[in-house]
């Protein structure tokens, strides 16, 4: 058997490589950043229909990632979806900003797009985004399209 020092050395190298691999997976592949865990604030928005939106879906403004969806709840009073939006504190938005549920590509994942308004007041933690645009549901869209075509045809 090899002596104790050599064994310790090998195990040390092994553990170091293992942790290096874990770090690589977390940082380079998973894009995880422990070091700049930026402070955030949460605002809510209500939607008639959120489609396939999921928790931790991206929140973008002008195509830039500014936050993530932190929660999705159902408001039993208004029968609407209540979505918590966690925004990086570096970015501030006017209080008349509108939120829309958009789709990346034709069939891609859904995200929330923020369109900044012109108000002087800024959104603060706990505020509610008043203007919202629900997700486009493909079935409804197709139904609408067929209905429109059907109503146009007799006129010809």
């Amino acid at each position: 058997m090899m002596n104790r020092t050599a064994l310790d050395l090998w195990v040390g190298i092994f553990v170091a490589i293992g942790f290096a691999a874990l770090t690589f997976l977390a940082m380079k592949v998973g894009n995880f950043s422990v070091f700049n865990k930026a402070p955030t604030y949460v605002v809510t928005a209500q939607f008639d229909n959120i489609g396939g939106l999921k928790v931790r879906a991206p929140v973008k403004s002008a195509g830039v990632l500014v936050g993530r969806v932190s929660s999705i709840d159902f408001d039993a009073g208004s029968y609407r979806a209540v979505v918590g939006i966690e925004i990086d504190s570096r970015y501030e938005f006017p209080s008349d900003t509108s939120a829309a549920i958009l789709t990346s590509g034709l069939l891609g994942e859904q995200y929330i797009g923020l369109d900044a308004g012109g108000d002087i007041e800024m959104l603060r933690d706990g505020d509610r985004v008043m203007l919202s645009q629900s997700a486009v549901v493909l079935e409804k869209l197709i139904g609408q399209f067929l209905f429109d075509r059907a109503s146009e045809t007799p006129a010809q």
């Binding site: 977390a26 380079k28 592949v29 998973g30 894009n31 995880f32 931790r56």
Partner: peptide, 19 residues
């Protein structure tokens, strides 16, 4: 190659769950 990977891989659902 890397940016697409980083955009699609989530630390919690993918890396952490694998661990």
């Amino acid at each position: 190659f890397w940016s697409q990977m980083q955009a699609a891989v989530d630390f919690r659902t993918d890396v952490l769950n694998g661990v």
